[in-house]
Design a protein around this nucleic acid. Structure first.
Lengths: 341, 341
DNA sequence: ATGAAAGCGCTAACAA
DNA sequence: TTGTTAGCGCTTTCAT
């Protein structure tokens, strides 16, 4: 399959009997040109449907006006929202975006970085894979002074700009909500314990308990690997407990949805038997029965903020000093938690 | 924010006292080199962490090994799945992918095409925006011999490769299912009538009715613009009908979910009062109460097929003749339709 | 087996 | 006001 020919400056120049530089100047509206020539060139360019070759341009000025984005999973609604925010923010400022997904694999994450760097992206926005537990590839970027920011799934000690949610605060809010609506034995269903968000949300959970004078009970913490099977296993374990909790806070909505589904199949009533809450505000959480109390994390905003700050830095509008941007979350109370009065 | 320096062939050449061409040859493992020189070069390159500048390479060989993708909405689960399939397929064959979303706007669609073409992508995969009702921008691509395929939202008469689902077949399946489970007054809730899928699914709906000897009744067709408000309005109109349908097939899941939610709030029981079915098999359709009967469209497969055929064409493994690939859908019966026996 | 040179399409310093 | 020249990093003939 052949590819059609693209009009170049050279051709325009030849047709008009001027030099390529004149064409170049005319096309970027340089003031030092004769109005007449400029007009002729611009008109012919339009007529011939000239499109600049961004490749050549980038090579020449060593800037691609392209950003690389790496997310763990494009099909996750949250990350899709982030991407959407990044795209919109980038486009508005004349930048393009190359998106890669790591599929939660550190290998792919590293190879994604490699190709994006080879493609000469001006900077990167990265959300780390679940598997990522060593950070040479990030160190390498840092070493080579390739600008990047981390968002949502960050490596805390990396001295670059990081954009995160106040996970602890969100977990605090939702746990407090459970306590305020009458729960006294609140359980936390955590994801893998080395995950940043697992830890942070646990901290918020503990904080709320302590504020209510409740001593955290290790029996009231369960861990899932986030697979459907394990989620169901955990759901069943909760049913089987001698002393069941009266409220359960799951680290992310999908876990809560799986738990809910299993419970319903086992005749457990939510919130009457046990209250249930999630985190993230996925679309599904709103449509399950009963609708799930959760914590909303605006991914679109996160993406937009991250890209805007990155571009501010790139373009010298903001200091290069790495900063940490923390977005607040909001509690979304729904029927899966008791509306006590 | 400055960007770090990248090692070039020139530097390697200088360090080793050889020419750039020799380095180039060594790095692509040309057979006509002295083994010894080759080894020295390759080793030094690795040591210096040399990464080829894809920009320069692309400019030279006029191939970027990059594909452009345009989807209406990245946050839609279906399109995210398509993208995922496209990415995986492309990466496996050494290609990168630049993704854009049109936000269902023809303006953005056109400008996306423009930037992708300017970025010299080797080919495009496009799913048209809802707004797209004229096609000069596609004609233009065609004229300029820039390879592209259309997927899911296609322009039927365009002589390029198109990948679609058997929408008519899917609609037929689900309507037939409604009829087989006892419905006799089956309604079709359509999206905007100029949409390709609105039409195709209506055809399948009509076909099933006719097969059951039922004459299509214009009163049993309603149209929504797919907004929440209009969906609810339609849901209420159905409730208010003198002669209600006993089964409703909505063109896409989100509509069905909105209808279901509204009905539940009005005390309508599904499927007892009316059966309900959707199309697409969105994640939400599985978790609503009752779970929604729907038709599954594997987006990942669609993306993979589309990209593989495109690359086959690009690389001469398949004929350039445009073909039409039609994927079959599968009925996913759930509790929102009566399980009659 | 290796090097010199040209050129991909563009920009920009320097000349004129 | 415009042209000439060099060069971004790479590949690829053509010499040697």
């Amino acid at each position: 399959m052949k590819k059609g020919h693209q009009v170049t400056m050279k051709e325009i120049a030849k047709k008009l009997g001027v030099s390529v530089s004149t064409v170049s100047r005319a096309l970027k509206d340089s003031p030092e040109l004769h109005e007449e020539t400029k007009k002729r060139i611009v008109e012919l360019a339009k007529e011939m449907n000239y499109q600049p070759n961004l490749l050549a341009q980038s090579l020449r000025i060593s800037k691609t006006k392209t950003l690389g984005v790496i997310v763990p999973e494009i099909t996750s609604h949250f990350f899709a929202s982030c991407i959407s925010g990044i795209q919109d923010g980038a486009n508005r400022r004349g930048y393009n975006v190359m998106i890669c997904q790591s599929n939660e694999s550190i290998e792919l994450e590293m190879s994604n970085i490699k190709t994006l760097v080879a493609s000469q992206v001006d900077a990167l926005l990265i959300s780390l894979s679940r598997e990522t537990n060593h950070y040479e590839h990030l160190d390498d970027l840092y070493q080579r002074e390739i600008p990047f920011v981390l968002f949502d799934r960050v490596y805390e000690v990396m001295p670059v700009t990081k954009v995160t949610f106040n996970d602890q605060g969100g977990a605090y809010q939702v746990t407090k909500h459970l306590l305020e609506t009458g729960c006294r034995r609140v359980m936390y269903v955590s994801g893998p314990e080395d995950l940043y968000i697992s830890k942070k949300r646990k901290e918020g959970y503990t904080q709320a308990l302590e504020e209510f004078g409740i001593k955290p009970d290790p029996k009231l913490i369960k861990v899932t690997d986030l697979t459907l099977e394990k989620n169901i296993e955990v759901a069943q374990e909760i049913i089987d407990m001698d002393e069941r909790p009266d409220g359960v806070f799951c680290m992310i909505d999908p876990v809560a949805v799986d738990v809910l589904t299993h419970w319903k199949s086992q005749g457990i009533k939510v919130p009457e038997d046990m209250a249930l809450a999630g985190f993230t505000n996925n679309p599904t959480s709103a449509v399950v029965e009963p609708p799930l109390t959760t914590v909303s994390q605006p991914g679109y905003e996160m993406g937009k903020l991250a890209v805007n700050h990155l571009l501010d830095q790139l373009e010298g509008l903001a200091s290069d000093e790495p900063i940490s941007i923390v977005l607040e979350t909001t509690l979304v109370p729904r029927k899966s938690t008791r509306i006590n009065s």
